[in-house]
């Protein structure tokens, strides 16, 4: 078949091209620009090459922030995923209570991040907070402004409170899509409750669960607002996650070069992990339909 060449088609692509350029490419390129230069003020810049990158890759500060970030994401995933699935399994399947549960579960998801931070900041304070005061009255030494463990516990519990519903709602949707016949067949096969979970519910939830884990990983890996509001990264550096460290570097110290290099590496890590997830997920789907 012969294709007609019409160069005017470029005009039709132009608006999108401009939009993407101004909203993504140009800002990103500014960051790239900063990341390879150094400045001593007066808007004078000097070529620095990959110096910032190599310096950051050898910086203990960055690696410990990275380690804390990985630990935080791992802990909240390890808590939220099983808990969310457990909640979904125990939610009513139909009727008025199903709707009530859905609304209640959706509520935490509607609260803005900094409000969640503020709620927990006040809730956990030893002097006036319900939780902090009660714990102190019970003789438990709990003070998130002093004790790193208390600070971490507060952040983890807060994140679980905020986001477990997302996993629960997605799992619930996955569970609802399982035809009744599967449960009936399991009864006839004398399958135990655990078998039903392992061989029917979990495989059927696999797809949505992968998406839930991906979303939660990305979100928790980029967490900023809540720790900023509650602990400000402290005590010491114990809750200084990557975003908090980045902001300290870029706006606190105004080290534009290193901060730009930091941003780019941060961005690449998030993209790499998402790509791995995406590839694994699509490969699983392919395996599903390969022989079909």
């Amino acid at each position: 078949m012969e294709k007609t060449v019409n160069q005017r088609a470029w005009l039709l692509v132009l608006p999108v091209f401009l939009l993407v350029a101004f909203s993504a490419v140009i800002p990103l390129m500014t960051v790239v620009n900063y990341s390879v230069q150094d400045t001593f003020g007066n808007n004078k810049f000097f070529w620095a090459g990959l110096e910032w990158f190599s310096e950051l890759l050898h910086s203990e500060r960055l690696w410990s922030a990275f380690g804390r970030q990985i630990a935080f994401s791992a802990i909240i995933l390890a808590l939220e995923v099983p808990l969310g699935v457990f909640v979904a399994l125990n939610m009513p399947k139909k009727g008025i209570w199903a709707s009530v549960c859905l609304v209640l579960m959706a509520l935490p998801l509607l609260i803005p991040w900094n409000v969640v931070g503020t709620i927990w900041q006040i809730f956990s304070r030893v002097d006036i907070g319900l939780l902090g005061h009660t714990l102190a009255a019970m003789g438990i030494d709990y003070n998130y402004t002093r004790d790193p463990l208390a600070a971490w516990t507060t952040l983890v519990v807060m994140d679980v409170w905020h986001w477990t519903s997302l996993i629960a709602l997605l799992s619930y949707a996955g569970l609802q899509s399982i035809p009744q016949a599967y449960y009936q067949a399991a009864k006839i096969d004398q399958a135990s409750r655990l078998d039903v979970f392992r061989f029917i519910e979990l495989p059927k939830m696999q797809g949505v669960l992968m998406i839930a884990i991906l979303i939660r990983f990305m979100d928790s890996f980029m967490i900023y607002t809540e720790p900023f509001v509650i602990t400000g990264g402290g005590p010491g550096n114990s809750t200084t996650f990557l975003s908090i460290d980045l902001v300290k570097m870029a706006l606190g110290q105004f080290d534009l070069g290193p901060a730009a290099a930091f941003s780019l590496m941060y961005f690449l890590v998030v993209m790499l992990v998402s790509w791995v997830f995406y590839t694994v997920m699509t490969n699983m789907e392919k395996a599903d339909t390969f022989h079909g």
Binding site: P179, A181, Y182, Q184, A185, I188, F199, I200, P203, K204
Partner: peptide, 12 residues
């Protein structure tokens, strides 16, 4: 024993 209208298999 019962066989249903649509395939019911344990996927994994």
């Amino acid at each position: 024993a019962q066989v249903f209208q649509f395939p019911v298999v344990y996927d994994t």
